[in-house]
């Protein structure tokens, strides 16, 4: 019941928004087409303004990853995370999650295929992926769009959130799916 509802919701929600907003606009006597175009015009500049920031951040993360420094980091962090009860196979996902959306999606897919989506590791990986966003991407894009160079404590807050949701995913899945 709940599952079907969720599936239906995820299929219907975007069409519903795309239907309701223009119809309500029309009923409120808005020139819907003109308003849409006017709003959409901003999209181009904004996307272009983000570009240099994305280049900077993605290049840095990519060098860090390709050089093997990330793997060294994972090896170094593994015993520490194991102390907190994190299964060793999930350590790469924990480190990758805040850095790269496509990278963590790749790792999670591999975990799902290796251990099976209904294994504990598979369930934890799914929950980790679903419950957080890619902190560095959000940080780069949101602040880049308004030319904020000094995000102050925002990275700290974002990363502490990543650690919290990762550990919570591990513990809550272990508790929920232990039987």
């Amino acid at each position: 019941m709940v599952i079907e509802l969720c599936e239906q919701l995820s299929v219907w929600v975007i069409p519903a928004v795309l239907f309701l907003v223009p119809v309500i606009g029309y009923l409120k006597k808005v020139k819907v087409y003109e308003a849409f175009v006017e709003g959409a015009a901003e999209g181009f500049q904004t996307a272009i303004r983000i570009l240099p920031c994305l280049v900077a951040m993605l290049v840095a993360i990519s060098i860090f990853r390709a050089s093997g420094a990330l793997d060294a980091c994972i090896l170094f962090m593994a015993p520490m995370l194991n102390m907190f009860g994190v299964p060793p196979d999930l350590v790469p996902l924990a480190i990758m999650r805040p850095l790269s959306g496509s990278g963590s999606l790749g790792i999670a897919t591999e975990l799902l295929n290796t251990y099976g989506p209904d294994s504990l590791v598979g369930r934890i990986a799914s929950t980790v992926l679903a419950s957080t966003d890619t902190t560095f991407y959000v940080l780069t894009v949101y602040f880049g769009a308004v030319a904020i160079n000094n995000p102050r404590y925002a990275p700290l807050v974002g990363l502490s959130g990543d650690i919290a949701s990762f550990l919570a995913s591990v513990y809550i899945c272990q508790y929920l799916f232990s039987t």
Partner: peptide
């Protein structure tokens, strides 16, 4: 994607 959602957002604002 930016254009699409900012366009929809503008209609939602004006209405």
């Amino acid at each position: 994607v930016m254009c699409l959602w900012l366009g929809i957002m503008r209609i939602a604002e004006v209405s």
